[in-house]
Amino acid sequence: MTTFAATGPSPDHEDPAVTVSTTVNGEHRTMSVPAHRTLLEALRDQLALTGSKTCCAEGECGACTVILDGHPVTSCLVLAVEAEGREVTTVEGLAPQPGELSDLQEEFLAAGAVQCGFCIPGQVVAAECLLRANPTPSTAEIREGMSGNLCRCASYERIVCAVHATAERRAGA
């Protein structure tokens, strides 16, 4: 027989929940999270922003990359409570309007960079930050700057093309 526990549903964990107020994709959001909850988990589970993905959960793959106060970070290595009062941008916040694509996202598609797609949100966020910091990167600079974002489909050359194309597009704009 399957052994059933006598207890029913109960609070999340022994850690007390903390209220965190933050700005996510330009909107004020409030989350209630235990202290050990990572920003990645909170974005996904509390705010239903599932564009940021979980793979290694220790900062090695970049699938969870978000922008925190203007800088790219791996959200698996940030506690949600640390985001109090800070500004977070996720992949969902990059397109000009819901249902649209940013120029960079368009170039990812055009270059054939999107295969299984699981790493792509993190790649797009990292590439966006790269271009903001360096609007005309060389191929070597793109490879260096993006090397924290793993892609097992190995779309690496495609992504380099997409970043170059976006840089050219922005320079011409």
């Binding site: 598609l109 055009a110 999107v114 797609g117 949100p121």
Partner: peptide, 23 residues
């Protein structure tokens, strides 16, 4: 021809739901 990936836009915006993303 190099037709763009079906479902590519959802993947680029994070809208694509993989198993862990399903509510």
């Amino acid at each position: 021809s190099g037709v763009l990936r079906y479902g590519g836009a959802e993947r680029a915006t994070g809208a694509q739901q993989y198993v862990a993303d399903l509510p």
